Each structure stands twice: as structure tokens, then as C-alpha cells.
Amino acid sequence: MPAFKLSDITGVIPALITPFDENEAFDEKRMRACVRFLLARKVDGFYLTGSTGETFLMSPEERKRVVEVVVDEVAGRVPVMAHIGAIGTHLSIDLAQHAQKTGVDALSSVPPFYWSFPQHEVLGYYADLTASTDLPMIVYNVPLAGLFGFDMIAKLAQIKGVEGIKYTAPTQFEIMRIKAEISKEFVVYSGADEMAMSGLSFGADGIIGSLYNLMPELFIGIRDAIATKDLGKAQALQETANAIIFFGASRGLMAVIKRGMAWQGADAGYCRRPFSNYYDPEAEEALKNEFRLLKKERNLVGVKFLDAI
């Protein structure tokens, strides 16, 4: 029995990074430290082993171990969602059943990808997953694995156990339509960091994103500003976040997130290749200098990782 109902899983939810050491092995000690760091920053939950967690660069056994470590470290303090997507249904079911046994509160999955699976096979994939556990399923609408149109989302919502969607697409007007035409109870998470403000404005129940590992304070601020209808403040915070997002994207965003966390005292380790890294202290110092210049040029305030350098 999950500790949290899906309807209670709202707010700012980092798509959690997975720390690897210098030899690309999963680093449990760093993982636990990063969880504690984000809990201290008052995030509202965790989304594990997704794209930001480098899940498709890990073996099934490693993915399971990440879930075990995070659930143990969280110890029921906030909800935990596990992404269990894979191309093959057999593997996804195995990961789903392990995640339920470990104690997560909800599951999520990209659709099967690489081959162009027809609609009935994608629907069958999700039906098989939801039948394999008692946990709610959050389908994942993301360009990397293929976007769903509204009609497909409506069909997915009819599958028993599919209770929400992680909506990482630019067509955020569909969030309103989902709530109006599918169900107000169908949970929607906005998944585009650079559109957190608009996602919440259009009715998303929560936001899940990569940069919430690095600068959760900005997105918590956006959440609170939207809740009080202070759109000016929300816009200013989103502009600050986006300046950093677009700047970091050209410098290896995954590596930037992990190094930026380390600058705040939460050593998130390194990425697995083919992602880039900042192993060289001189290269890392150059990155810090670039961020210092960005902070000055754009007058970026209230960003803790920038203040730390």
C-alpha cells in the first residue's frame, strides 16, 4: 500500500539525478547525500530513474538499486515515483514489480520507442504495465520517446490504472483540455523546466524537472507565486531560471547540474558517457567563471548555486 495517494503528489518534484563516480559506477554515498540535500531544500517529492537519472545508460540491476537506495533514504518523508520505462514490456514489468515491492508511491513510463510501434501496441504496453502492479501509472509525453496527441492521451486515460501524465511538450494549452475533457482528477505534471510557470498557470498539479536538482528554490518560488496569483514574480523567477537553462544547455547540461550541486555541498558525482563531464579542475573553474559573468551580466539574484561560487 503506497504511503501517498497520487492526488497528494503535487508541487516541485526533481527528476532526480543519478551520481556516478569517476569510473562511472553508481555511487550510493553520493546518492544519499543528494537526496538529503534536496529534502533540506523542501522539495515535494522525487521522480527516479528517468531521463535526468540517465536510466537508459544503466542496467536493470542498477536501476533497481537506485530505487532501493532512494526509497530507503527518503524513508517516507515525501512521495517517490519510479520511472520503469523500457522498449520491452517484459523488462518494464520486472522493474515495476520491483519498484512496488521496494515501496514507491507511483510509477511512470515513456512509451516503447526505437521501433515505430502502432497505437494499439503502445496502448497494450501500458495496459500490461498497469495490470502488473497496484500502483498508479503516470504516462510520459516527451519528444525523446514520441509525443502523444490529445486523442491518444484520452485513450490512455481509459486504461485502468493510468491516472496521470507527465507532460513534457510545448503544447501546454492541452493541459487545460485534459482537465476539462478527460477529468479534473486526471493528474498532470508539467515536465518542461523552461515552462514551469505556464504549466502551473494552465492547471498542472505539479512540476517535474531536471534543473530542480540544481536550483529548487527558483521553482518553489514559481509554484508559490502562481498559487498567490503573483504572475509578475513568477515571470521574473522563470526568466532567471531560463537564462541559466539556456546558458547551461550549451555547456553540457547534465554535467552542469551535477557540478552546480557540488558547488553547494551536494557532490552529485559525474555522468556516464557519452555525456560530457568536468573532470579537469581548470575546466571546472572556467565554467564557474562563465557563470559568474552570466550572473553579473543578467543581474541574477536569489540563485544559491551562483551565490556559492
Rank of each mutant, 00 (worst) to 15 (best):
M1P: 15
A3R: 13
L6W: 00
G11R: 01
I13G: 01
I13F: 02
L16H: 00
I17D: 07
F20P: 00
F20V: 14
E28Y: 03
K29Y: 10
K29M: 03
R30S: 08
R30Q: 06
A33L: 09
C34L: 07
L39I: 10
L39N: 03
A40V: 05
A40S: 14
A40P: 06
A40G: 10
K42G: 03
Y47V: 02
Y47K: 05
T49E: 08
G50F: 06
F56G: 11
P60V: 09
P60S: 02
P60C: 06
R63Q: 13
R65L: 00
E68T: 08
E68D: 12
V69F: 10
V71Y: 07
V71K: 02
D72V: 00
V80H: 05
M81H: 02
A82C: 03
I84G: 04
I84F: 00
T89A: 06
H90N: 13
A99Y: 06
A99E: 09
A99K: 03
K101I: 05
V104A: 02
V104F: 12
S108L: 10
S109L: 08
P111E: 01
W115P: 00
S116H: 11
V122A: 09
T130P: 03
D134E: 14
L135H: 00
P136D: 12
M137Y: 04
M137T: 04
L144A: 15
A145N: 15
A145E: 13
A145V: 13
G146N: 05
F148I: 11
G149I: 12
I153V: 12
A154I: 03
V162D: 06
E163H: 03
T168I: 04
Q172S: 09
F173D: 15
K179Y: 07
A180H: 07
A180Q: 14
S183N: 08
K184Y: 14
E185L: 05
F186E: 12
V188Y: 04
V188F: 04
V188C: 09
G191Y: 02
E194C: 07
E194Q: 14
E194R: 08
A196V: 13
G199D: 03
S201G: 15
S201H: 13
G203V: 00
A204S: 13
A204E: 04
G206W: 11
S210G: 13
L211R: 10
Y212Q: 07
L214M: 10
G221L: 03
T228H: 12
L231M: 15
G232P: 03
E239L: 01
N242R: 01
G248M: 02
L253A: 10
K258L: 01
G265K: 05
A266C: 13
C271D: 04
F275I: 05
F275N: 12
N277R: 02
A283F: 11
F291K: 09
E297R: 08
R298T: 08
N299S: 14
N299I: 14
V303P: 12
K304S: 15
D307W: 05
A308F: 09
I309L: 14
